[in-house]
Design a protein around this nucleic acid. Structure first.
Length: 572
RNA sequence: CGGGGAGUAGCGCAGCCUGGUUAGCGCGCAUGCUUCGGGAGCAUGAGGCCGCGGGUUCGAAUCCCGCCUUCCCGACCA
C-alpha cells in the first residue's frame, strides 16, 4: 500500500490522556482514537494489527476443532434471568430497553446465549463434544476503564465454549484449548506464561490464565525458581512451613503500652521501635457465615481469595468501623486477638512459632507487647491465608518463589454444569437418559493482546511489532520522492515484494527523510528499506531492522530474496 | 463511590492568581520558493461556543455557584 493514501494520523507529541506505553504509542502511531472513556475507534493501521491477531487466533481455534459462530451483542434479559445472572451481574452490565419496553443488555459475555443455542440444537451424545467460538465485541461498564485498549469498556474478545458428555471429555476439551492458547501466543511472538488461577465464583476444578510478561502488567504472578509451578498471586500456594511451637521459656511478660493514634503496622512498628514482622495484623471480616477474624504477620498481606476459599463462604469483605468496634471494643487500628470471644479466629501459617509479638489491645490507643500463642492467645485454626511473596517456598518443590508482573490476555475455565443445569442444556445418553452437558469457556482479549505486545516490545522511538502482527512487514522509504530514479527503484522493489505476498508499505509521501524514518519507527514496521543516493549511484539498498542493529547493504537485484529470507528468519 | 489533576485551534500548551484593546505560542494544516540519509528554512494564510448553564460586573477565558467530560491513585473486576 502507498503511505500517501492511507489514514495514519501519527502524532509527534504524546497525547495528554495516555499514561502507559501501549496506550501512548497506539494513539501516537494512529492505530486508535478515543471516542469516550474506554471506547475507541480503530483506524486502518490498528485494524491491520487487530486483523492479523484475530486471524492467528482463528487458525488455531479451527485447528483445535473449534467452529466459528457469531452471537448477538444485544441480548434479551430472559436468558440472563434463566441463569440467575440478571440480578447478580450488577452495574458492569449495561442494560437497555427496546421500543416495546423489553429489557436487553449489551453482552458482557456469552454463556447464556451459547447455552441457549446449544440446548436447542444439540440433543444427543452423538453430537458431542462440540466447541463453538466467536470473535467480536463485548461491553462491560467497568468502574474505571484505563490504559487505553488494555482495559476498555468495549473490547474485542475471542470467546469459545466447549460442551462435553462427561468430565473426561471436558478435561480433554480444556487440554486442547490450553494447547491452542500456547500455540496462539507463541505464534503472536509474545513472551508469556500460563499460570494457575482462582476459579472465582464461577467455580469448577481448574482454570489457567495466560499472562504476557511485562513490567507494567497489572497482575502479579508467582513463579518457582526450581520447577515449573506458576500461579496468580490470588491462587499461589505457599509451602506449609515446618516449625515447632515457640519455646515458652523465652516468653516475656505481657505488657500493655500506650500507642496514641498509632493504627497502621508502620506507625506502630516505628513507634515501638520494632520490625513489622514482630507484629500480628488482626483483620476483621464480615462473611456470609458471620464475622471472622484473620491473623497474619505484620509484614505479610492477607489474601482474601484464600480466606474465602478456606471458609467456603459466598461473600467476604473487610468489616466496617461499626462491626470492628462491636467485635473488638475499639476503633479501627487497635484490634488484637487477646480475649476475643464468640468469633472464629484463623491464623496464617506464617505466625506459627512466633513469640513475643505485638498486637492491638482492643482499646483505643493501646497495644500489647510480648504476646504469645498458647499463653495469651488460643487459635484453633492455622491455614495458608496470605499472598505469596518473593522468597517464599514453592508448594511443589520447596524451592524459592519469585514474582513477576504480567498482563492477563487469556483465561480458560472448566465451567462444569453451572449453566447447563440452570438453563437445562442436556443431551440424551446411550440409555436415552437426559444428562447435563459439561461446559468449558475460553477467552482471549484481542485488543489487550495487541496492547500487551506493545507493552512488551517498544523503545523510545515507538513500537517494535513482532512480525506476525506488524501492520506491514516491510516499509520501503525513497529518500526523495522527486528523484525519478529513486522512485523507480522503490516502486520496483515494492511491486516485487508485493508479488511475493509480502505486506509492504511504500512511503511515497513528499516528506523529508527524517520524518519518514521517525514515522516508520513509530508504527513499528519490522524491516525498513531505504532507497537513496546509494541506490542511484552504487546500486545498493540499506535494510534495517526496527529492533536495532546496523543497516545491511544489499544489491538492488538481491533485495527481494534477502528480505524474504529475513522475514522467515528474523534472527539472521 | 472516595481522593487528586485537567478541559483555551487537529495535537501539546501559555494566559486565569491581580477582570479591561483584535485570546496567544509551538507543532500540524494550506499555498509558493529553496531544500532532501533521522521530525528543514523563509514568506503568506486558514483555523476558537476559551467544556456547558447560571450569576456578579459597565465589562468575564479570568471571580462565584451548579453541572458535564476526562485523566491519575484507591476500592472493584470470568
Amino acid at each position: 500500500m502507498r503511505y500517501s493514501q492511507l489514514l495514519i494520523p501519527t502524532l509527534r507529541e504524546d497525547p495528554a490522556e495516555a499514561e502507559v506505553a501501549s496506550h501512548r504509542l497506539m494513539m501516537r502511531s494512529g492505530m486508535i482514537r478515543k471516542v469516550a472513556a474506554g471506547i475507541y475507534s480503530t483506524l486502518p493501521l490498528g485494524q491491520r494489527v487487530i486483523q492479523k491477531t484475530k486471524q492467528i487466533i482463528r487458525e488455531e481455534m479451527n485447528r483445535a476443532g473449534g467452529q466459528e459462530v457469531f452471537l448477538p451483542f444485544i441480548q434479551p434479559a430472559e436468558l440472563w434471568e434463566e441463569s440467575g445472572r440478571w440480578e447478580v451481574y450488577g452495574k458492569e452490565m449495561l442494560r437497555l430497553r427496546d421500543r416495546g419496553d423489553r429489557q436487553f443488555c449489551l453482552g458482557p459475555t456469552h454463556e447464556e446465549v451459547i447455552t441457549d443455542l446449544v440446548r436447542s440444537t444439540v440433543n444427543s451424545y452423538r453430537q458431542l463434544p462440540i466447541n463453538l467460538y466467536q470473535i467480536h465485541i463485548k461491553f462491560r461498564d467497568e468502574i474505571r476503564p484505563r490504559f487505553g485498549m488494555m482495559r476498555a469498556r468495549e473490547f474485542i474478545m475471542k470467546d469459545a465454549y466447549s460442551f462435553d458428555i462427561d468430565e473426561n471429555g471436558a478435561e480433554e476439551s480444556y487440554r486442547k484449548m490450553y494447547e491452542a492458547y500456547s500455540r496462539i501466543f507463541s505464534r503472536l511472538g509474545l513472551t508469556f506464561r500460563a499460570v494457575e488461577a482462582d476459579t472465582g465464583p464461577i467455580g469448577g476444578n481448574f482454570s489457567h490464565e495466560f499472562m504476557v510478561l511485562a513490567d507494567t502488567g497489572e497482575d502479579i504472578i508467582v513463579t518457582c525458581t526450581g520447577c515449573d509451578y506458576a500461579a496468580n498471586t490470588e491462587k499461589a500456594e505457599i509451602a506449609k512451613p515446618v516449625v515447632s511451637d515457640a519455646d515458652p521459656a523465652k516468653f516475656q511478660a505481657l505488657k500493655r503500652v500506650e500507642t496514641p493514634d498509632m493504627r497502621t503496622i508502620e506507625e506502630v512498628a516505628g513507634f515501638l521501635n520494632v520490625l513489622p514482622e514482630d507484629l500480628i495484623k488482626t483483620l476483621v471480616f464480615t462473611s456470609s457465615q458471620g464475622p471472622v477474624v484473620a491473623l497474619v504477620r505484620g509484614d505479610h498481606d492477607i489474601n482474601e481469595v484464600k480466606l474465602r476459599n478456606y471458609l467456603k463462604c459466598d461473600s467476604l469483605e473487610l468489616a466496617g468501623e461499626e462491626v470492628i468496634e462491636k467485635i473488638t471494643g475499639a476503633p479501627r487500628g487497635f484490634a488484637g486477638p487477646i480475649g476475643m470471644k464468640n468469633v472464629r479466629i484463623i491464623a496464617d501459617y506464617g505466625l506459627q512459632g512466633c513469640c513475643n509479638m505485638v498486637t492491638g489491645g482492643n482499646e483505643r490507643d493501646v497495644h500489647v507487647v510480648n504476646v504469645n500463642f498458647g499463653r495469651d492467645v488460643s487459635v484453633d485454626e492455622f491455614a495458608d491465608l496470605r499472598s505469596a511473596q518473593a522468597g517464599d517456598s514453592c508448594p511443589r518443590c520447596n524451592k524459592l518463589l519469585s514474582t513477576t508482573r504480567g498482563i492477563e490476555v487469556g483465561h480458560i475455565f472448566k465451567l462444569g454444569t453451572k449453566y447447563s443445569k440452570a438453563m437445562n442444556c442436556s443431551y440424551l445418553d446411550r440409555e436415552g437418559k437426559a444428562q447435563p452437558m459439561i461446559m468449558g469457556c475460553y477467552g482471549i482479549g484481542v485488543g489487550r493482546t495487541v496492547a500487551a505486545a506493545i507493552e512488551q516490545s517498544h523503545d523510545e522511538n515507538g513500537i517494535i511489532f513482532p512480525e506476525p502482527i506488524a501492520p506491514f512487514s516491510v516499509i520501503v522509504v525513497p529518500v526523495n520522492t522527486n528523484d525519478a530514479v529513486q522512485m523507480e527503484i522503490a516502486v520496483n522493489l515494492y511491486n516485487g515484494l508485493a508479488a511475493k505476498g509480502v505486506d509492504v508499505l511504500l512511503d511515497d509521501r513528499d516528506e523529508r527523510p527524517g520524518s519518514k524514518f521517525k514515522d516508520a519507527d513509530l508504527i513499528g514496521v519490522p524491516l525498513r528499506v531505504t532507497v537513496g543516493k546509494n541506490a542511484v549511484e552504487k546500486k545498493y539498498l540499506d535494510i534495517k531492522e526496527r529492533k536495532g542493529g546496523e543497516a545491511q547493504q544489499v544489491a538492488i537485484d538481491d533485495a527481494v530474496a534477502v528480505i524474504e529470507r529475513r522475514l522467515k528468519q528474523p534472527e539472521v
